[in-house]
Design a protein around this nucleic acid. Structure first.
Lengths: 268, 268
DNA sequence: GAGTGGTCTAGACCACGTT
DNA sequence: ACGTGGTCTAGACCACTCA
């Protein structure tokens, strides 16, 4: 549970490849509005129906906003309201300067379309945590690739045990470029959020992050620190945190107690 | 891994209770706009900062849209854009005729505020699946409570092994009120989505669903059907699917292969 | 009736990607 | 240069809640 190598998915999702010439444009069926129901709802549902009809391939381009205004007889604000809903739900991709494009064929046998809400349930993490180790080392090939650095560039290797209400709940291993935060060891990692130290001490602002969540099993090391049994179910979470310019500021792998945290999903 | 009883979280999140008189109003700190960054982003982040400052209790009422327009010197459309983002991310509740109110205390030490996007990564499920058993029985106390039925009301107990591209990937146990779908056994559960059968054969439309996701370990039964080893990490997923009137139409517990699926989260 | 959020319009300017 | 989506404004009418 401790290597920074690939995780070895056994069945990768098939990436849709664009054939030569690419998928055709989306052509809408006629539309009649119904009274009493908000226009942008009707437009959204009509677009969902059209896009899910199977007549179009992923990647197909939607009509521009102006064309949709004409087709639906609505103002641009209303059209944009409907399109924003579709984009939020992952049905379409929108790109300024290019257009709007159909995304996935259909995600899963979910209730109707897509996830609406996602949150973790459990006690909030305390700031900081117990630093198990903080060392400077040279990046090996894996870490260098993940962080987008040259091999042998200096990185910090930070292991912390973190608590919620004083109870150990997650064990985190972080990799950070030394160039980003020289002398990191001088700061109080026991009591401050890493993200706050980066921002306040180094002026480094994290813009966004990606997490990959998998089920895993506590090994001896995990079990000892988290106070659980070897073999107990845990979440394994990989997080890549990005700077504003797209570089990765931190790569982290965490093991989180499965008996304390769970994820909750709302589907609509 | 197979009882329908409670899951026994060890540390429940504390529910904030409203004191007598209720929580006070939200009072905003002064705001200075920065050039080059969209106004509604800045307003959203400023509101996040204010709401997460700890100065306000859950339930606290935000200033009205007009007041926010004045405070931020922006038009109503821009203010509404920012507020819509906050509502979408679950930070506030908005109610027409009443106002906007602060929701949760604070979720987690995430990058700045909240989850933006999440999806499951892995191959799409095939429709239907191999029915391992479909029996009619009387609801025991646990299932009756979950489904909101009286004890001893008839339920269907359905176990299916489901596939993705022909490979077994998830084992599902469903509980449905017989009243909702009498003679369910007459329909082709091997090849159709349960949700489609309910809609097309019984006119029962599922409105929304909730899922709880935990890490778990494959037991002998899981391992045998899914073709994995006993003790292999899996996701355990509880799903409650709701009808439009709020009743629960299906309670399901599923075990999903951890080597095939993972969740991806985008944080902003 | 006053205040709230929900809907909708019409118009403007911008950054961006393509041609 | 042109079309795309992103941002923002100013104003209007509505349904709803609450005093």
């Amino acid at each position: 549970m401790n290597d920074a190598t690939g995780t070895g998915r056994q069945m990768e999702t098939a990436r849709a490849t664009e054939g030569p010439g690419g998928p055709g444009p989306v052509i809408l069926s006629p539309f009649v509005r119904v009274a009493r129901i908000p226009m942008h709802h009707q437009i959204r549902e009509d677009l969902v129906l059209n896009l899910n009809s199977g007549r179009f391939q992923p990647g197909a381009e939607l009509p521009g906003e102006a064309a949709l205004c004409a087709h639906y007889g609505a103002s641009r604000g209303t059209i944009r309201h409907a399109l924003a809903d579709l984009a939020r739900d992952g049905l379409i991709d929108r790109q300024a300067g290019r257009g709007s494009f159909l995304r996935h064929p259909k995600i899963e046998g979910s209730v109707v379309g897509s996830y609406r809400q996602f949150r973790i349930e459990g006690p909030p993490l305390d700031a900081g945590g117990s630093v198990l180790s903080l060392t400077r080392r040279k990046a090996d090939a894996n870490v260098a690739e993940i962080l987008g650095l040259g091999v042998d560039r200096a990185i910090y290797f930070l292991r912390r045990l973190r608590f919620a209400a004083g109870v150990p709940v997650t064990l985190q291993t972080s990799y950070l470029p030394v160039a980003l935060c020289p002398d990191l060891q001088k700061h109080n990692l026991d009591e401050r959020h890493l993200i706050d130290i980066l921002l306040q001490e180094y002026g480094v602002a994290m813009a966004r992050a990606e997490e990959l969540i998998e089920p895993a099993i506590a090994d001896e090391h995990d079990a000892k620190h988290l106070g659980i049994k070897i073999g107990a179910p845990v979440f394994q979470i990989e997080r890549r945190t990005y700077l504003a310019d797209g570089r990765i500021g931190e790569f982290r792998r965490a093991v989180m107690r499965g008996d304390v945290y769970r994820y909750r999903l709302d589907l609509r």
